[in-house]
Design a binder for these strands. Sequence first.
DNA 1: AAATGCTTCAACCGCGCTGGG
DNA 2: CCCCAGCGCGGTTGAAGCATT
Length: 359
Amino acid sequence: MGRAPCCDKANVKKGPWSPEEDAKLKAYIDQHGTGGNWIALPQKVGLKRCGKSCRLRWLNYLRPNIKHGGFSEEEDNIICSLYISIGSRWSIIAAQLPGRTDNDIKNYWNTRLKKKLLGRRKQSNMNNMSSMGGETKDANGQEDDSYSPGLSSSAFERLQLHMQLQSLQNPLSFYNNPSLWPKLHPLQEKMIQNLQSLNEFPNTALMEHALPSPQPVQGQKVGFYESPTAAKVNELEKSLHGISSSDNSVAFINENNSMDSTHVPKANGIEQSNAGIQASVFQAELDNFLNTKTVDFVPQEDQMAEFDCFKEMNVSKDGVLWWSMNDFDARSASLNAWESTSVLHSQQIFQEYELGYNL
DNA sequence: AAATGCTTCAACCGCGCTGGG
DNA sequence: CCCCAGCGCGGTTGAAGCATT
């Protein structure tokens, strides 16, 4: 037994809206507002439409100041950064882009941005692989088919994108520590095994073959990078507060030529140098794609101290920057010139993001 | 010029959440 | 506390337009 339909489907018109219907709806809402009840609205307006359909039409097309198409590079950057940070929360992303609707952004991501990003990765990987004379595989060793069934699942795709970022930035992160993984249902285990079996080359092995190990230089960054997300938010931070308060997963060589353990957990089977190379390669790709300026940033102890939860989890706060609670609210308040959807329902949502993606 | 394939995007669908009764 | 109507969201669909053969 399914749920009751929201309206009488038989007596409701479906499909594209006519100019007359648009005009009717717009005129009514301009004059009376929505009345706080979309279900009752079509009757009042005299439209044979479902209330949900009216709402959608108004929000996505008829309401004032809607922008269609022509996404700017700045908007691209914001969408990409937020997608990597929070996933397909289109309404939240839309709230950061005045005049854009969640539907528009969702379509834009699915039809263009995603392909642009993955397409570039594909191209870049092909370049890497061509020097090896191997067949085309992505950085995870998978058959590099950007449109493969594996990527058709948005959840898996997002996971993959995020894992790429996460593992490149922090080779000792959760994703690279199976011992930290929660127990899975046997079917889930099986699925993961199947996915892994597709990987002819483990991630690091692939890069090990592709690239020589770097020689760390005293005082230099060794490959961990500030993600575009972090850079973007850092920029926003600066513009909002006039200071930089974000932190990034940047590994440093201290004066003794050893890793600064404040920021980098002790190695456990994965060579930092390889991770560094992976990161720099990916950074180049992503920076190129996002056209985001990479900002040199030296994290301070007191800044790290803000993130006790990361310490407890024995991982550095990685460069995939999570909106800190107060920051996000403040940012939302100042950037969200648009009305509509509440940007954040509560701090809890983002605590979940932090926990969920960093665990 | 016609057929076919591909891309785009408006609209629909169904589910989770919320608040009022 | 429970139920239910309505809202809002994310995923999906399918028609229209465009590109290619």
